[in-house]
């Protein structure tokens, strides 16, 4: 944690280029402790790339970032000890059982052997998957898989959890349930950094940033953003920004 401020994530001119293509173009922002921070943007706007840099999965081309008090370039492994991550594509082991996945990741994050059954058991009960602990993960419906992946990502009590489109492809009820889990985690002090396409979900965030063509076009609370763009919904804010920036920078997709 930065001593002076209370920021868990700091990005300064964070940039990622692939050849001549600039996926993330000098973005700067801060995320405060305990916040639910929405990271919005159209497909290909650079959300996932930015998130992968913050998680220590991808090296920035230039600029710097600090997550949980550590530099994402030089101290990536220390960053990893303090974060949880749930990728866009479900990536727990489908050929392992629910319980085996929990045990594996708890073990990797050095949860003591004796505590794994206690912590893991309580978690399964909380997300309502206690009955399927011995089922293969591949047999679970997508909504359950997402809840499991999220819970595994925060099992070791990280300071921040990164969620990359965590609710893609499920019904509104399942999404609602998922957001209950997010609130619960945030309530217990875990900072949540979440990307999404769903503008109703953006309303649930404390603050949102909207990325267009690799840059952050706007960053504020949903309330302020709506006020600034004189609209009733985040949906309109999003469309105004994406359309406007799109014209400036020329069509991309």
């Amino acid at each position: 944690m930065d001593a002076a401020t209370d920021n868990v994530i700091t990005a300064r001119n964070l940039t990622k280029r692939f050849g001549t293509f600039t996926a993330v173009d000098a973005i700067s922002f801060e995320v405060r402790r305990g916040e639910i921070f929405g990271f919005l943007g159209a497909n290909g706007a650079g959300k996932t790339t930015a998130m992968r840099m913050l998680c220590g999965l991808s090296l920035p081309t230039s600029g710097e970032g600090r997550v949980a008090g550590f530099d994402i370039t030089d101290e990536a492994e220390k960053v990893k000890r303090n974060i949880g991550y749930m990728s866009q594509k479900f990536s727990l082991y489908e050929d392992l059982k629910v319980w085996e996945n929990i045990r594996l990741f708890a073990g990797i994050y050095r949860v003591p052997d004796r505590e794994i059954p206690i912590v893991g058991g309580a978690m399964l009960k909380r997300i309502g998957l206690a009955d399927v602990r011995d089922n293969f993960v591949r047999d679970l419906p997508l909504g359950w898989k997402q809840r499991l992946a999220f819970s595994v990502a925060i099992l070791h009590r990280p300071k921040v959890v990164f969620l990359d489109e965590p609710t893609g492809g499920v019904d509104p009820m399942a999404r609602r349930d998922f957001w209950e889990l997010i609130y619960e985690a945030a309530g217990s002090g875990i900072t949540v950094f979440v990307t999404t396409h769903y503008m109703d979900e953006a309303e649930y965030c404390d603050r949102v940033s909207i990325m267009v063509d690799g840059r952050i076009a706007a960053l504020d609370t949903p309330f302020e953003l709506k006020k600034r763009y004189c609209t009733q919904s985040m949906d309109e804010v999003f469309r105004t920004l994406v359309r406007g920036e799109g014209k400036k920078g020329g069509a991309r997709l």
Binding site: K78, K80, Y85, S87, K89, S91, L92, I108, Y109
Partner: peptide, 13 residues
């Protein structure tokens, strides 16, 4: 190919 390596790479293993 299955993407599971990503979940491992983001851990401090």
């Amino acid at each position: 190919e299955t993407g599971t390596i990503g979940q491992i790479n983001v851990t401090p293993v």
